[in-house]
Design a protein around this nucleic acid. Structure first.
Length: 727
DNA sequence: ATAGGGTTAG
């Protein structure tokens, strides 16, 4: 089935049909109301560090040093120009004049009244090169230079076979590595003083420095150029910017782009996509879109690389509207995605939680004659695994074999992880054996982790422990995730001594326990008693002493009060990775309940709720009030239920209006950790004689009517009064 | 390594 492009939100029948293609596409982007996109994009500030004016006097050929550039406002600043079009042009109710008004140009430069994007001029390799004996000599010489000791460098340099003319020097510089040598050679050429150092020498040297991630050296060279009045061109800037990006110096990347803007030099398409990627990696979606819009408005035709950048960005944000926008834009420009763009889009579809659309997009790609590579298949297998789409995963696997599609190590490991996600034990075992028998793809710690995950979540402790032994024999290090899988299944099997041994061995081998592992240990503590609990706590003590101190604080009932709990818990949560916070809270509640500290359990649930760990715990409509306990542990679910009933009793006392129906959602237990919650909840309500009955139509739901609930709560209240009177 | 830009694993 071919992939269907989404309809533009402003269809041709709307009053805005006269809008240009660009405006239509933009409007559909800006008018989409996906909550996820807003959450991620809304509060990001614009890059307003400094407001740069564009000076008329700064010539493009000889930029002045930064301090000498006039800072007065002669045109809109870069920051102003990057303001989202949504806030400058598109009003909430776009009028036709707005949409028809010509967009402002990107690069307002007084010296160039009609700016346009510089068109790209690639350099071509001269084909006569390798036939010339002189060039062969110089290539060989460069190789010798690259391979010699750094201390011998100047000595070897004296044997240069031909005079260091401009062309000869460039040739050597181009094939020199690593960066230390390039810099030495560059400085040597400069000292010879045979010809003036032009931009290209700086650019080639910077390229080598970039391979070595030597941003400081690159920046020093750039300042030297500015000082000497040597032109910085698009190649210089894009090299500086991408080097900063690779060194994670995003501020520097933006700073150099602003500097470029300040000199009035127009970015070309390479610089454009490089900078778009910088803003994208900073998560500044609005800025990326704004720059994209400005570029489009000034005549830039985005190419596949720019679209790959946009697709990646929207994927990271889980923004499906954004992905649709990319597809729409490419379509309106008549561009077919290439392999990389398809791969990025597939990945993005997965992150946006759209496995079905990823599947259609993949089919469209294959139909259009583009053969998938390892990355394509890795993305798709991962998506099917996460979605538990067993049939699609297996079908794709089979197709890979039939078509002889390429497979690499990462893809093998992804297939194993997919088997773990879906529970394909035999398939995983077969693949794992194949990998052991292969030459190039011997199982590594990722492969073993996937297998440990399979055996661990399936409760096959013995096979998991066999793997653990096998790993140390094969010299494969256990990583933190594999350790977590083992701890989890050993804990469930109550094999605490093995658990301690695995944990100690891992830590000695260099595993750094993370919050997930700590959460896993904590959960084992919650269902262990006495000696066992103490042993596991001792492990946890090594990994997270503050957490253990908190567990002890909870247990010291007489000397602990709510404010202490609140203060300490807040500190613990703020030092915990977000994905581990709720599990921590769940386990701590379980620990309290198992030690008969029910009141503490209620306090923790309250704190967890106000710290946002249980969003959507209660939902209310006129017809139905619902308690959602799917993400809660058994103890936390019981606590939440008690809390709810307490609140309802008070509401009844105050004679306020209640809906006709009440429900509790435990989930149907398809998730591997939620199993048992439903049955535990069932026996809990039975013990309390509460009128909640398991729904026959909706799996994982418990239902009570208003009347039943009212009479039960009132009966409870009167018996409590009776009990109080008789005491 | 065409002086410069984009994609694979909890």
């Amino acid at each position: 089935m071919p992939f269907k492009f989404p309809k533009p939100l402003l269809s041709s029948s709307t009053p805005f049909s006269m809008a240009t293609n660009l405006s239509t596409a933009l409007a559909s982007y800006h008018h989409s109301t996906d909550a996820n996109r807003r959450r991620i994009t809304a509060p990001l500030p614009l890059p307003t560090k400094k407001r740069f004016g564009v000076s008329c006097n700064v010539s493009k050929r000889a930029p002045s040093p930064p301090s000498a550039v006039a800072e007065e406002q002669k045109g809109p600043s870069l920051a102003d120009q990057l303001k989202p079009l949504s806030t400058t042009i598109l009003a909430d109710q776009p009028s036709e004049t707005h949409l028809l008004s010509k967009p402002k140009s990107t690069w307002v430069n007084p010296t160039k009244p009609k700016p346009s994007v510089l068109s790209l001029q690639r350099h071509k390799r001269s084909s006569s090169y390798s036939y010339s004996p002189q060039i062969k000599d110089l290539r060989q010489f460069a190789k010798k230079l690259s391979e010699c000791e750094e201390s011998d460098f100047l000595g070897v340099l004296e044997g240069i076979p031909h005079p260091p003319t401009r062309e000869n020097a460039l040739l050597v510089l181009n094939s020199l590595r690593p960066w230390q040598k390039s810099l030495l050679f560059f400085n040597w050429v400069k000292a010879q003083n045979v010809f003036p150092m032009e931009t290209i020498f700086y650019n080639v040297t910077m390229k080598s420095l970039r391979f070595g991630r030597q941003f400081q050296h690159i920046e020093d060279l750039a300042f030297e150029m500015i000082e000497k009045g040597i032109e910085l061109d698009n190649i210089t800037y894009s090299t500086i910017i991408t080097c900063a990006k690779r060194c994670n110096l995003f501020d520097k990347a933006v700073e150099w782009f602003e500097r470029m803007y300040k000199t009035g030099l127009m970015p070309d398409e390479v610089t454009y996509s490089a900078v778009l990627d910088v803003y994208a990696k900073l998560g500044k979606v609005e800025e990326v879109m704004s720059l994209y819009e400005r570029g489009r408005a000034s005549g830039w035709k985005p190419d596949p690389i720019a679209f790959a950048v946009l697709a990646k960005m929207f994927g990271e944000a889980g923004d499906y509207d954004g992905i649709r926008y990319v597809l729409q834009e490419m379509k309106s420009l008549g561009l077919q995605p290439n392999l990389v763009v398809y791969n990025t889009l597939l990945e993005a579809m997965g992150k946006a939680g759209k496995p079905g659309l990823a599947r259609s997009l993949f089919e469209e790609m294959v139909d259009s004659g583009i053969a998938p590579n390892e990355k394509t298949l890795t993305a798709l297998i991962k998506i099917y695994g996460r979605a538990r789409w067993a049939r699609d995963a297996l079908e794709l696997w089979e197709r890979m074999r039939l078509n002889g599609w390429p497979v690499d190590f990462i893809l093998y490991n992804t297939l194993l992880s997919m088997c773990a996600d879906i529970g394909l034990i035999e398939e995983a075992e077969k693949l794992f054996e194949d990998m052991k028998g292969s030459e190039k793809c011997k199982p590594d710690s990722w492969s073993y982790t996937a297998m440990l995950n399979i055996y661990g979540s399936g409760g096959n402790v013995d096979k998991a422990m066999d793997l653990f032994k096998e790993m140390s024999e094969a010299g494969v290090k256990l990583n933190v995730m594999g350790c977590t899988c083992l701890v989890q299944c050993l804990g469930r099997a109550k094999r605490i001594d093995d658990l301690v041994r695995v944990f100690e061995t891992s830590v000695e081998a260099g595993v750094k326990p993370d919050d997930r592992l700590c959460g896993c240990l904590l959960s084992v503590v919650s269902y262990c008693e006495g000696e066992d609990a103490a042993k596991v706590l001792a492990c946890l003590e090594q990994a997270n002493p503050k957490l253990v101190a908190f567990v002890k604080l909870l247990a010291a009932n007489n000397s602990t009060n709510f404010d202490m709990v609140k203060e300490e818990f807040k500190g613990i949560l703020s030092n915990t990775a977000i994905e581990a916070r709720r599990p921590f809270c769940n386990c701590l509640i379980d620990i309290c309940r198992n030690r008969n500290c029910h009141e503490r359990a209620h306090e923790l649930l309250y704190l967890g709720t106000i710290y946002g760990l249980y969003p959507g715990l209660h939902t209310k409509t006129e017809e139905e009030w619902r308690l959602n306990v799917r993400s809660l542990s058994v103890g936390a679910a019981h606590t939440a239920f008690e809390e709810w009933m307490g609140t309802l009793a008070k509401i009844i006392q105050r004679q306020e209006t209640l809906p006709p129906l009440f429900s509790a959602n435990t989930g149907a237990g398809t998730h591997k950790f939620s199993q048992g919650l439903g049955s535990a909840f069932a026996s809990h309500v039975e013990k309390l004689a509460a009128p909640f009955r398991e729904s026959e139509e909706k799996a994982g739901f418990f239902i009570a009517t208003r009347e039943d609930l009212q009479s039960w709560l009132q009966a409870k209240a009167s018996s409590a009064v009776t009990a109080a009177c008789t005491n």
